Amino acid sequence: MIVDLPDTTISKLSKKLVTLREDGGAVALGRVLTLVIVSQYGEEEEAIEAANEASREHPMRVLVLSQIPADSAEAARIDAQIRVGGDAGASEVIILRAYGDAASNEESLVNGLLLPDAPVVAWWPIEAPADVVNTAIGHIAQRRITDASEHEDPHAALLDLSRSYAPGDTDFAWTRLTLWRAQLAAVLDQPPYEPVTGVTVAGAADSASTVLLAAWLQMQLQVPVVQELTPRGSGDTGIHGVRLTRASGDIVLERPHDTIAKLTQPNQPTHELSLPRRNLRDCLAEELRRLDPDPLYGEVITKGVRQLKVESGTGEGTTQ
């Protein structure tokens, strides 16, 4: 069910939610958190779809702040839309479009719609501010999710995240590494238990995930990491592979296709492993499983990235 409420107020919107629950039998008692999505006008649907799918694992209320272009000449007002039932997965979706002076205080827009005594997670699926914790929405959230790959220059975005990091921050460029990190850790947990003497990480020049993977490996293995980056505009995206050098030979994990990776080790047959590119739903669902700070991400973004001396450049958004 979709209900449009043009030129409304937060008070009227809250009352309408209560009416819909009473009339339709939908209840908010099972909701475990409030997810606030900060997006651009006209670009909300992909994020809403991902939230709807993730809500089947994490029932929640979804508040979408659809940012209107600053040069809009519309009179001050709030237009809202409520989605429940089949149009909202296992969540309630509330879309807010504030015009003029009504958009000047984002915190006041959402405060009256937050679930009581429930955690607040903020997500910027678009290019996020350089210091999200000190934004109106970031200030009220326990967790703040950004995506460096959405920036024109993902490497510069990582450096901004490194400077402004606060406990509770995370980035989808890091979340996309979960499967890579698990596979590499599993390989190194097998004999022979030799030290790694060299690491090479290959990926696209504008892949934030490639940088974070290199930073993580350098911190964990305490060896310099070489990055082999393909030129921008070549059509390649994301991480291509990792080479770990040991005395007995090289371990190579490479992904020539979007879903299958090849693992090559000395004196062993080549193995094919499932290593799919992660979509928004997978990344969001994983981040919602833990609402406490991620100290490992904090170390990688604040120390590891700086140690790599990442150079800024211009590129399009990328995948993991």
Results as ranks from 00 to 15, higher is better:
E254G: 07
A182T: 05
V196S: 04
G235Y: 01
H139G: 00
L184M: 06
T200A: 02
M219R: 14
G233Q: 01
T197H: 07
H257D: 15
G238H: 05
I145W: 04
Q183M: 08
L184K: 04
K262S: 07
L212M: 15
R163E: 13
G238T: 02
V199E: 01
E254L: 11
D189I: 09
A204W: 01
R232V: 13
P256G: 10
R176V: 01
T175K: 02
A205Q: 04
L212R: 11
H271T: 07
I239C: 12
L161C: 12
T270M: 13
P256R: 03
T200V: 06
A156S: 11
L217D: 03
S164T: 14
S149E: 15
M219V: 08
G198A: 13
P224C: 09
K262F: 05
L244T: 05
E272R: 14
P266G: 10
Y165S: 12
S234I: 01
T210G: 06
A173R: 00
T264D: 11
H155W: 04
T270L: 08
L188R: 12
H139S: 14
R243P: 05
A173I: 03
H155V: 09
R143S: 15
T230Y: 02
A186H: 13
D236T: 06
D258R: 12
L179T: 12
V242I: 12
T170V: 14
G168C: 02
R232M: 03
D206R: 11
R143L: 14
P269V: 05
G198W: 04
V223Y: 07
Q142C: 09
Q190W: 09
L179Y: 08
T197D: 11
A182I: 00
S149A: 15
N267T: 11
T270F: 03
G203I: 00
L213Q: 01
Q220R: 14
L159E: 11
R163N: 03
L275V: 01
Q265C: 14
H240T: 04
L161M: 15
L188Q: 12
V199S: 00
I239T: 07
A215Q: 14
Q227V: 05
D169V: 09
P231I: 08
S164N: 13
L161K: 09
G235S: 02
L217P: 07
A202P: 00
D160Q: 12
Q183A: 09
E272D: 12
S234L: 08
R255V: 07
E254Q: 11
T259M: 12
P192G: 05
Q218G: 15
S164P: 06
G249F: 03
I239L: 09
I140D: 11
D250V: 03
S207C: 13
Q222D: 15
D250A: 04
T264M: 15
V187Q: 03
H240N: 05
G249C: 10
